[in-house]
Structure formats: structure tokens, C-alpha cells
Deep mutational scan, measured.
Amino acid sequence: MATGGRRGAAAAPLLVAVAALLLGAAGHLYPGEVCPGMDIRNNLTRLHELENCSVIEGHLQILLMFKTRPEDFRDLSFPKLIMITDYLLLFRVYGLESLKDLFPNLTVIRGSRLFFNYALVIFEMVHLKELGLYNLMNITRGSVRIEKNNELCYLATIDWSRILDSVEDNYIVLNKDDNEECGDICPGTAKGKTNCPATVINGQFVERCWTHSHCQKVCPTICKSHGCTAEGLCCHSECLGNCSQPDDPTKCVACRNFYLDGRCVETCPPPYYHFQDWRCVNFSFCQDLHHKCKNSRRQGCHQYVIHNNKCIPECPSGYTMNSSNLLCTPCLGPCPKVCHLLEGEKTIDSVTSAQELRGCTVINGSLIINIRGGNNLAAELEANLGLIEEISGYLKIRRSYALVSLSFFRKLRLIRGETLEIGNYSFYALDNQNLRQLWDWSKHNLTITQGKLFFHYNPKLCLSEIHKMEEVSGTKGRQERNDIALKTNGDQASCENELLKFSYIRTSFDKI
């Protein structure tokens, strides 16, 4: 039985969820670079991206490699990797027998973001014989899940209580170790020597080791999670996991709180800001991140802002960003909400898709409305799209047979046209069989910064309504002859009103 693990408890099935942008060198404390989270699957090609990484700022997932063999891993080693800020997950990587050479110096898994409450997941690794993470000293947050690894031993010899604050939620089941077939031998045991430290858990006094050649490092209890030197002297209180010299914040392997210019500090002093819960960055760093993602459509890219001495992905609820200094300031009234469309555009074809934009005031991208039916549609669209004030790209209304009016965009005031449909149009209306009105132009103002209007096959939309939009939106004169079809717009509506004058002759039985 794995020490510190839980057996036999019912657990939810383990679901495996399925960018080499360097964020800056980590400095003297770390020998390499800070790398983003990685999802490495199918083959070993991307694994080489770990070569210079000291910190993975995010998670590391290595999974679904069915053609790899043990010899493929023999020359692979990433000794610079010290810390993973989120979680480490391995799933069905064939041929991998140990992690001792792959990650010989991995010391800390912070667990800032977890995989279903777990910071370390080893699942269905069919050839893994031992973990071998002999320098792993601290899992700051989260638990361990090690399950269905039929060859995995050296679990009962690990004292997880020396690595985690609590072992109650560890789930370590259905491994070879369960069948008591392992016969784990710690260093020196074969020669009758006791080389590794022994600890007591559940009444068992057991030597602690990761492999037959690597003991588990056990520091004096007084050192807590700070770690200790090879001689057993406690590291500085700002260290986490390990250090090369005692009581020196510049000799830590990793930091308990924050890293700044080669030393570990309790908090980031001005003019620095907390970033990702582990390091200090200056304003320029946060500003660069903001600008890199301002026009990016890459998933996970955030326009970072500053709030409460932190550089964070977005302002919290009730705050909006001051564009001059990136500071989050309290909103006066309802907060603006910028919604970034991942692929640059979004099609609204149902109430469900409209709900995804609920509360958005600025759309960074283009909207395509293609709704053919739905219950209580006008009210639903207004509830979900009615706060949109600005669209950076274009607005396209296409084959939306259920629409009679666009009044559900009740606050839309600006279409920038930074991206144009077919390279020309910022407003595009095609084949809307029941569209009769755009907006009530006596109450609604709309500016279209650039781009043209396109109207074709809107049989109940009168040309007068379209011409009014040209005047109000500032697009009059931009359109070419064929942009607004004269014969297919309003051709099934009563669009022309003329005053009919009647004269009559009164007659009676005795007068003409």
C-alpha cells in the first residue's frame, strides 16, 4: 500500500482533458527560462521544448504516446526543470519506465491550478516501474492521483506527508504495488545497510526511497516546507523545498512566496507586481503582455491589467481597466465587458449561442446573426445582446428569417469595421425574408467608422429604411451602385405612401 494514499474509496472516473512563447529569463536562482504550460502528445517531438525550461508557468501534460519505446527515452533528460506552477499529468506514455532521468531536479509542483483537485496525476502508464522524482520536495496545493499503472512499484516507500501538507485526498490505487509483488529495495538494503531515512506512518517504520538508488530526502521537522541542505541544516524561511546553503534567500532552489532578481522575498516591493503567484514583474512586463494579447485571437491570451499590486489576466467583477495605466478602477454604474472572439468572429444561430455573449459591452471581433427560429426570440436576444455598444469588426445579418427588427441591439452605437466582410463591408444584410426595420432612427444613433453597407434580398425592408441608415451611420456616399439592390429590397412591402385627393359631386333626387 502506498504510504499516505487512500484505498478502496469510491472515486469519480478520471477524465483526461485534452506555445513556446518565453516569458522571460528567471535569473540567477533558476538555471534556465520560464516556459508556458505545455500539452505534449502523440510523439516526442515537442518534448524537446523543455530543454531550457527551469519553470513551467502553467501545467505540463505528457500523454497518448503509443509508439514510443524505452530506448526512445534513454537520452532524454531535462535537468534544468525545477518547478511547475500548476500540475504534472502523465497518461498512456508507452515505453517510459521512470522519471528519474527525465526530470531529475523537479523540486516543486505548486498546484496553482489543479487537474480535478490533483497536482500530480500518473494514470495508465503501462510501462512505468517507478516514479523516480527523487528531488520532489513540495506539492504546495492539491493532491496526488496514481492509478492503474500495472508495473509501478516504489510507492509504499514514499512518505507523501513530507511532500504535501495533507495526504487525506491522495488516491493511489490499482498499481502493481497493490499486489505486494514489488519487493522494493532501498539503497544499501541488499548489503544489509540502512542508507535512507525511515519514518513512521500508520504504525509502520519504513525506509523512504524513490528507487533502488535514490533515497527520499527527509528534512528535520523544524525546517517545515522550506527544505534543508545535504547536511540537514534548514533553508531560509522564504525558500521552498530545498537550498544549497542554509538561511540564505539567494540560495533557495525555489521560493515559498515570490522570486525577485535572484532572491526569494515575502512580497513584491514597489515598483514590482505579483505575477502568477510566484514571481515579481515590473510595469513594462505587464504592459507588454497586455499589448501582445490586445489584437491576438490565441486562446488563453489575456490583456493583463494591474489590481491590488498584482498583474492579473482581467479586472475583477465591479472594476474596469483604465487604459492609460492598466489599473483596475471601480465602475460607475454597470461595468464594461470586452469579449474577445477566439477566431475573430462568432455566429449567433440560437439563443444558446447568444447567451455566451451575455453582459458583453464591447465585441472584439465580428458578429454573424443567422437565426431561423426560436421561442420568445426578441426578448431572449435583447437579454443577451442588448448591452453590446461596440463591435470592432463587422455585423452580418444573414438568412435570419425569424427577425423582424434589429432593435434587440438596443445599445449598439459603434461598428468600427477594423475587419470587413469580403474585404469591403462593415454591415452586411443578406436574404432576411421578414426583416422590416433596422432601428427606430428617431431614437437610435449608430456610427460606422469604416467599410460599406450591403443589402440584398431583404424583400420587406424598404429602401427608405436603408437610406436612413446611410445618413445616420455616416456611410452615405461610400456605397457603390450594386451594394444596395434596388429590386430585391422592399419588393414585397408597401414602401411608397402617396396622399390621394378626392373630389365629389353631391346629387339628390331633384338636383344634379
Rank of each mutant, 00 (worst) to 15 (best):
N43G: 07
R46L: 04
S213Q: 07
E180R: 11
L90E: 00
D159H: 05
A230W: 11
V108R: 11
T85P: 00
E130Q: 13
R141S: 03
F66G: 04
L64T: 07
M321H: 08
N242V: 08
N242M: 06
V121P: 01
C255G: 00
G142P: 00
T194R: 07
N242F: 08
N257S: 12
S77H: 08
K129M: 09
M125P: 00
P271A: 13
D101P: 14
Y118P: 00
F285Y: 03
V126I: 08
Y87S: 01
D261Y: 15
G132F: 00
K224C: 05
S324P: 13
V200Y: 04
H291E: 09
L155R: 02
N257P: 00
P271L: 06
Q276R: 11
G132P: 00
D86F: 01
I222Y: 06
F205K: 10
C228L: 01
H28A: 14
N170R: 10
D165T: 04
L44K: 08
C215I: 02
N179A: 02
N43W: 13
E314H: 02
K80S: 11
R279Q: 06
V34A: 14
S166T: 14
L60G: 00
G227N: 01
I158F: 02
L44C: 05
N325S: 04
I84F: 01
F78K: 02
V281I: 05
Q303T: 03
Q287A: 13
K294Y: 11
F258Q: 03
C328Q: 00
N322K: 01
C331E: 03
E51K: 02
W210R: 01
L60S: 00
R141L: 04
V108P: 00
F123L: 01
R113V: 13
G232P: 07
Q299N: 08
E57Y: 11
H236R: 02
G300F: 13
N282L: 06
E97D: 06
N195W: 13
N308L: 12
Y94V: 15
C182L: 01
H226Y: 10
V34K: 08
R208F: 13
W210F: 01
L240Q: 07
A190E: 07
D159Q: 03
D72N: 14
E207W: 15
R298Y: 12
S244M: 14
H212N: 15
L88T: 00
F205D: 01
L29W: 10
